[in-house]
Design a protein around this nucleic acid. Structure first.
Length: 461
DNA sequence: TGTCATT
């Protein structure tokens, strides 16, 4: 809850003990016990901070104090105010010196009475900051798909009292291989992590048991935002910077980089190797043009006329000599002098808000493996051993919007299994990639590029 | 032939 979150900071930053914060008329006499005026109130170590909601906005701390003092000596009481306007938010944080006072107040007041002018009863309950549950709830991963709630309980029982145990299941009831386990205390949860995380590998699981604290609401929201960002097509910074021509400009930059490497007889990185090979292939299969990334969206106002001029400088050899002034560095100027300008005059501002939103560094959205629509997903075999996700992405960028590229890696050795997946956002790009890249020779191997087999299909080959 | 999944 945002209100509680900002309120915590406000409460922490505000004046401390009630004795100092509010000097009301009866400050020398609280809860029937007298104590010297000006004495600093101490709170118990196990004191609970309460959230109080449904308070009329005309009531300030001094008005509320008498109501709550009935249950014990108050250590701190803070009405939540808007950080900027100072407006009363209709709620407060309340800490009693004694834990017991808080419990009494909660049971006597929570939902039990409605303050004047409010239409819902007062809320008195431990504040979110009191670790209402997230810090004792565990996420358990790498379970066997056939393990039941009872199996998981048995596993986690030795470390404390389990309040809740839920296996995550899909709509069909099949286990997703993970679960939530909630203990009655943080310490118990921590003990379970220490003993169980990585301790064993469940039958059918691909790696050892995962035991960690579950995501907080905040983390969950963040993850959802990332997912949404992915769906909106914010895949990588180059897409944003170069718009629809990112594929072309990148492909050309790579080829030029590869040229330099090849000219020096050094092919140290995999991209140089692939780009060099790609150029031979370019010259062979369709002389003057890169494959047209069909289906790539063209920003409004851009004519498609520049496309042929992109191909032209490449020439029949698959490349053109570098302009002398670039000194071989594949900078963005290199691209411009080749006659390719990512921002024609007709299209000056459409992406500007995005680049302004991320002035320094475009956000790196962690690329999760996303399948495209049917017919957009490729299976690629016989990849060079040293190829990773990035190289795979680069290799297929010229054919369209690559929404994901994944090279499979052996988890034990971290070695590529030499196959992977590439997904486009449309089937035409996928077909173009198959046409151009299936049988593509790299070193001694030829790539196998075909549509990914659908999960449910049982084709025997 | 999408490996790890967050109510």
């Amino acid at each position: 809850m945002a209100a509680a979150g900002s309120g915590v900071a406000a409460a922490e930053a505000g004046a401390g003990p009630a004795g100092a914060a509010f000097s009301t008329a009866n400050s020398g006499r609280v809860n029937g016990l007298s104590h010297p005026p000006g004495a600093i109130a101490m709170k118990d170590h196990d004191a609970i901070k309460l959230f109080v909601g449904q308070i009329p906005r005309n009531l300030e701390e001094s008005d509320l104090k008498p109501l709550f003092e009935e249950f014990g000596r108050i250590y701190e009481l803070t009405v939540l105010k808007d950080r900027f306007t100072g407006m009363h938010k209709g709620c407060a944080f309340l800490t009693y010196c004694a834990r017991d006072s808080a419990l009494k107040a909660q049971s006597a007041l929570h939902e039990q009475k409605t303050l004047p002018g409010m239409n819902r009863p007062i809320q008195v309950k431990p504040a979110d900051s009191e670790g209402r549950g997230e810090d004792r709830k565990l996420f358990v991963g790498m379970l066997g798909k056939q393990q039941s709630e009872d199996d998981v309980r048995r596993l986690f029982e030795p470390f404390g009292q389990i309040e809740e145990c839920t296996i995550l299941r899909g709509p069909d009831g099949a286990s997703k291989g993970c679960a939530f386990v909630k203990y009655s205390s943080h310490a118990e949860a921590q003990a379970a992590i220490s003993s169980l995380h990585g301790s064993q590998t469940m039958p059918g699981a691909s790696s050892s048991l995962v035991v960690k604290f579950a995501d907080t609401d905040k983390e969950r929201t963040l993850r959802r935002m990332h997912q949404m960002a992915g769906q909106l097509g914010i895949f990588n910074p180059m897409t944003i910077q170069f718009g629809a021509y990112g594929a072309y400009t990148q492909a050309i930059m790579q080829q030029q980089a590869a040229l330099m490497a090849a000219a020096q007889g050094t092919c140290l990185n995999p991209m140089a190797a692939i780009a060099a090979a790609q150029m031979q292939q370019m010259a062979a299969f369709n002389p003057p043009s890169l494959p047209r990334p069909a289906g790539t969206s063209t920003p409004p106002g851009i004519s498609t006329a520049p496309v042929p001029s992109i191909a032209t400088p490449i020439g029949v050899n698959g490349f053109s000599p570098l302009p002398p002034q670039t000194n071989g560095q594949p900078t963005s100027e290199t691209i411009y002098t080749n006659g390719i300008h990512p921002y024609p005059a007709a299209y000056p501002t459409a992406y500007a808000p995005i680049s302004q939103a991320f002035p320094q560094q475009a956000p790196i959205i962690p690329q999760q493996q996303r399948e495209g629509p049917e017919g957009c997903n490729l299976f690629i075999y016989h990849l060079p051993q040293e190829f990773g996700d990035a190289e795979l992405t680069q290799m297929f960028l010229p054919f369209g919007n690559v929404i994901s590229a994944k090279v499979f890696v052996d988890r034990a050795t971290n070695q590529s299994k030499c196959f992977g997946f590439v997904s486009f956002d449309n089937p035409t790009s996928a077909q173009a990639a198959i046409q151009a890249m299936n049988g593509f020779q790299i070193g001694m191997k030829r790539l196998k590029v075909q549509l990914k087999r659908p999960k449910d299909a049982n084709r025997p080959y």
